[in-house]
Design a protein around this nucleic acid. Structure first.
Length: 501
RNA sequence: GCGCCGGUAGCUCAGGGGACAGAGCGGCGGACUUCUAAUCCGCGGGUCGGAGGUUCGAAUCCUCCCCGGCGCACCA
């Protein structure tokens, strides 16, 4: 596990001690409410317990003093030596800094996007990709072995309608009822042959461009082959000439039909069961599904599928994100691929830029419904904080460019400036922020943190010179550490860290 | 009706038991002979949807209510 200077300090005070950065500088560099939390269990007065903690803290190296405040907070004031050491560990960890929080490391599959190949990737699916991919990146950084998979629903009625729609366009006819329309159908009609492979190619290219890289692609048509051998293993019954899975035995709110009564064909839940089985057979410890909020009913039935097959349902994890609504000049428009009434990912990227698009779609928490005004998106993207963060990275790159080959050396620090201490404290937060974001599946914490880092750096940069200062070697080290952290933070949300802007 | 997710500054949203609630955008006013001004500094702006409850302490947890989004198919 990579180093975390703050946790290391906290651990010296006890296993239950967690350090936080107080919002007020009078409250020290770090503070803990451990005395308040533990007072009840220990049957001690909070301030008495706080006094013990404070005494223990003052005995530690680099702790200048510890103060008891309010009902029982302990505020720590640290010497420069602590900051210098913290910076040293950050630099020593390099790209691995903040990683390795996984315990234990697992093989995890993140299945995401999985939109029907009946049209290009829309902004709605892009949110799935931006969110899912960032979670995957966080899990990787935490030390898990992660694979990303896309599941194609390639055997349903939607596909027939899609092919029929292209056929109709080739004949110059109107699309069939419930068919698809839009410019992309007309384009596909220009080329001979099955439009599905062409559509899939386009989807895969769009996602690759969006920096969502898939390791594997699953097809429902192939997964379905596994259904028949699984049927005996699960709890089923016949009613009304239909075969049902007794999912209510495993927490679902109603049983699910498996095989259609009229023609004997498999219904989607049959494929879902086979797919869950397929995932675990391939050796994943955990199967993460990234689904839009309109699929929240899936949670119970996917877990039920795992349970019926004899797997621990906790190994199925469903990440839901709220939907994307499009507005145009304030008026809402419904997204529908069939009507061609959508904004495609590629258009969105063209309009707002790749980095701004990724940032935008992950910046908001998954539980928050997202409204995108098509008319304002491009204009607003100019003010996207992503550029503020990237600029900090580019500024540092500029400094380092000017002194290529020059030494940086943390130990050359003399008295640290307040802004230097603030910046180091910010960098020291990174392991905690990243571990928390990974555990909570909440990548939106990363952009928020990155802004804070950029904030602290820009302030430092404005106030103090790096080159030709008597602190040059130390400040170069500080710059390099900041650059590493910003680059990693941006990478975790799929955004580039440019060296020039 | 039942279930899931929201309701925090003019707007878009962070925060999700701790010390006076944060940011961006928008508004107003300042700062470049300097390693990138895509920057920095200052000012203004809040019944954290409402009501109860738990707690030393609630925007945060519990209950009820109001408003909005999304579900509740032999479609996927």
């Amino acid at each position: 596990m990579a180093a975390d200077p703050v946790s290391a300090l906290a651990a010296q005070l006890g296993p239950e001690v967690v350090l936080e950065r107080p919002s007020e500088s009078e409250h020290g560099d770090y503070a803990t409410n451990a005395a308040l939390r533990l007072a009840g269990v220990r049957r001690m007065a909070p301030r008495e317990l706080a006094a013990e903690l404070a005494a223990a803290a003052e005995a530690l190296p680099h702790v200048a003093r510890a103060e008891i405040a309010g009902p029982g907070f302990v505020n720590l004031f640290l010497e420069d030596g602590w900051f210098v050491e913290a910076l040293g560990t950050i630099l020593a960890d390099g790209d691995a800094y903040g990683g390795g929080s996984a315990q234990p490391a697992q093989r995890i599959q993140v299945e995401m996007v999985s939109a029907n190949p009946t049209g290009p990737i829309t902004v709605a699916s892009a949110r799935n990709g931006a969110y899912g991919d960032s979670v995957a990146r966080l899990l990787e950084h935490a030390g898990h072995d992660v694979e990303r998979e896309y599941y194609y629903n390639d055997s349903g009625a939607q596909m027939d309608r899609f092919r029929a729609s292209v056929e109709a366009a080739r004949r110059g006819d109107e699309p069939p009822a419930d068919g698809y329309q839009g410019a992309y159908i007309a384009e596909l009609a220009q080329v001979r042959g099955d439009p599905v492979p062409a559509m899939r190619k386009q989807i895969e290219d769009s996602l690759e461009r969006f920096r969502v890289h898939f390791d594997s692609w699953a097809n429902q048509s192939e997964i379905e082959h596994g259904v028949s051998e699984l049927l005996p293993r699960i709890d089923t019954y016949e009613a009304d000439g239909t075969l049902w899975a007794r999912t209510t035995e495993h927490g679902d709110d109603k049983d699910r039909p498996l095989i259609r009564s009229s023609d004997g064909s498999y219904l989607y839940y049959a494929a879902d069961i086979a797919y869950v089985h397929d995932k675990f057979t391939r050796g994943f410890d955990k199967a993460i599904y990234v689904l839009g909020a309109d699929h929240h009913g899936y949670v119970a039935r996917l877990k039920a599928a795992a349970a019926m097959l004899g797997y621990d349902p906790a190994r199925v994890e469903v990440l839901l994100y709220q939907l994307v609504h499009l507005t145009k000049g304030g008026e809402s428009t419904k997204m529908s691929k069939r009507r061609g009434d959508v904004v495609f990912l590629d258009e969105f990227i063209d309009e707002v830029g790749l980095d701004a698009a990724r940032w935008y779609l992950v910046n908001r928490g998954p539980d928050q419904t997202m409204e995108i005004d098509v008319d304002l998106a491009a204009e607003k993207s100019q003010k996207n904080p992503v550029y503020y963060v990237q600029y900090a990275h580019a500024r540092i790159a500029g400094i380092l460019r000017n002194v290529e080959g020059a030494r940086d050396d943390v130990s050359q620090a003399t008295a640290l400036e307040p802004l230097e201490r603030e910046l180091i404290k910010r960098l020291a937060e990174f392991p905690g922020v990243v571990a928390d974001a990974a555990a909570k599946r909440g990548p939106q914490a990363i952009p928020a943190y990155a802004i804070r880092v950029a904030d602290d750096f820009h302030r430092f940069y404005h106030e103090h010179r790096v080159l030709e200062s008597d602190q040059q070697e130390f400040r170069l080290a500080l710059c390099r550490a900041t650059q590493t952290v910003i680059a990693k933070a941006l990478d975790l949300v799929g955004v580039a860290a440019p060296h020039r802007m």
